[in-house]
Nucleic acid binder design. Structure first.
Length: 421
RNA sequence: GUGGGCGUAGCUCAGCUGGUAGAGCACAAGGUUGUGGCCCUUGUGGUCGCGGGUUCAAGCCCCGUCGCUCACCCCA
């Protein structure tokens, strides 16, 4: 049997690429409008970076990373998410030194060894942004409004922005204790996973789908926020309202990575399969210090490109069409046409042709399929007359062009047409 | 890691209670045509995922295996 692609990875074929380019270009333009610059960081890092940032006891680190020994014995991991690498670069290049707020975006593949499923692959693509250096709530609003605008520019509807606050070091401990106290009484009726989470990560119990609905009366983090956190959260709320960005508060919203603090959010799609979070993120005020940098607050989000594309109406994305399709019949015609095609292409005109010995009927079919604006036909009759036939594929008008200076005639015609459009 | 569904032509799929394979689209040739589209005729193309077993006979039944897919878990 022939060799196949690795389980859980996907080829993005030419027929699908338009949607990818659309989403990448839209994001680039928008992020730059908001003053963000692109950063490209490696797709692998020392394993320790991810263990320290994401959290050693999270599922991602415990059982989903692609980790291997480098030839010198050091542990290397293919990045399972983007924030860790960007923060590492932020520290390594001392980006805090020359700008108070580093505003960065990135796009590229991430790797997690999970069981593949709709909207979940082992190599998947994320577009993410990070704003590091300032903890003002207006930074949160900038990030959230940018996320919101990205999806409206992509004309993706039916999404809900959910926000929550996880508090900070000053108040989360008290909440955790209160929650454990509460869960203790419920322990016997919880699913096996939640009984385990009670010890490892009690906040996640609230996010459980099996036990959903059992915690109506559970204490929520929002009630335990310390004054600074409360003020921060309310400012974010008010800011979103003043920008007319719709959102809902989801007090049960918990994130799977340990580094999040204060503002967290998810963009959730309705009426989709199980993987219904298309973008998510939050504040991570302790992360930079955790990795060994100076205390610098940060906030960011990442969106799943495959998931976003699944929501786009890809039929409306225009695909490039040749201005001219050349049908040459026989070797003599082929020889004449070769330099013509080259010259047109060199001067920036998209030209396609067919090199097979197929009949004119068949070649015309290909021309039609390509969506070309014009078709140039050179067969035996045309050779004898010293003229080629140029057909407008829409109006079906035909005209004869002298073979002697055909390149000039075509160039004039086609570039005039391009300008009109 | 756990569970369900599915693997037949390049694509989408039929295939009865077991009798050594079909359609549509696509592709190619021809006819018609105002040199292409619509229509008509013909043609190319399949180790029925792979390996065992039962049987006179397996695409179909049984066992194993690989792959895809959906869901749980987790996450973007």
């Amino acid at each position: 049997m022939s060799i196949q692609a690795i389980k859980g990875v996907k080829d993005i074929l030419p027929g699908d690429i338009a949607a990818w380019q659309r989403i990448e270009e839209t994001a680039r333009r928008l992020f730059e409008d908001f003053g963000f610059s692109e950063i490209r960081v490696p797709i692998f890092e020392y394993t320790d970076l991810f263990a320290r940032s994401i959290g050693a006891s999270t599922d991602i680190v415990e059982k989903e990373m692609y980790t291997f020994d480098d030839r010198d014995g050091k542990k290397i991991t293919l990045r399972p998410e983007g924030t860790a690498g960007v923060v590492r670069a932020f520290i390594e290049h001392k980006m805090y030194a020359d700008m108070p707020l580093a505003k960065l975006y990135y796009m590229g593949p991430m790797f997690r060894h999970e069981r593949p499923q709709k909207g979940r692959y082992r190599q998947f693509y994320q577009i993410g942004v990070e704003a590091i250096g300032v903890d003002h709530p207006h930074v949160d609003i900038e990030i959230l409004s940018m996320l919101y605008t990205l999806f409206s520019r992509l004309k993706i509807e039916g999404l809900t922005l959910q926000i929550n606050s996880l508090g900070d070091g000053a108040c989360r401990g008290a909440y955790r204790d209160a929650l454990k106290q509460y869960l203790k009484t419920k322990l016997p009726v919880l699913c096996g996973d939640c009984q385990r989470r009670y010890e490892t990560n009690p906040l996640r119990v609230l996010d459980c789908k099996v036990d959903a609905g059992k915690f109506e009366d559970a204490p929520v983090m929002l009630d335990y926020l310390c004054e600074p956190c409360k003020k921060h959260f309310h400012t974010v709320e008010d800011g979103l309202k003043s920008l007319n960005i719709p959102f809902v508060i989801n007090a049960r919203l918990v994130r799977g990575l340990d580094y999040y603090t204060r503002t967290t959010f998810e963009l959730v799609m309705e009426h989709t399969g199980a993987q219904n979070t298309v973008a998510a993120g939050g504040r991570y005020d302790g992360l930079v210090q955790e990795i060994g940098g100076p205390a610098s607050p940060g906030i960011g989000f990442a969106l799943g490109v495959e998931r976003a594309i699944s929501l786009m109406d890809t039929r409306t994305i225009p695909v490039p069409r040749p201005a001219l399709f050349v049908c040459a019949l026989g070797p003599e015609a082929g020889a004449i046409v070769l330099p013509v095609i080259y010259q047109l292409r060199s001067s920036g005109i998209m030209v396609e042709t067919d090199y097979t010995d197929a009949s004119l009927k068949s070649k015309m079919k290909k021309a039609d399929k390509s969506g070309a604006g014009y078709t140039l036909i050179i067969g035996e009759q045309e050779m004898e007359k010293g003229k080629a036939v140029l057909r407008n594929m829409q109006t079906k008008e035909q005209k004869e062009l002298p073979l002697a200076h055909i390149e000039l005639a075509l160039q004039d015609l086609l570039s005039a047409r391009n300008q009109k459009e």
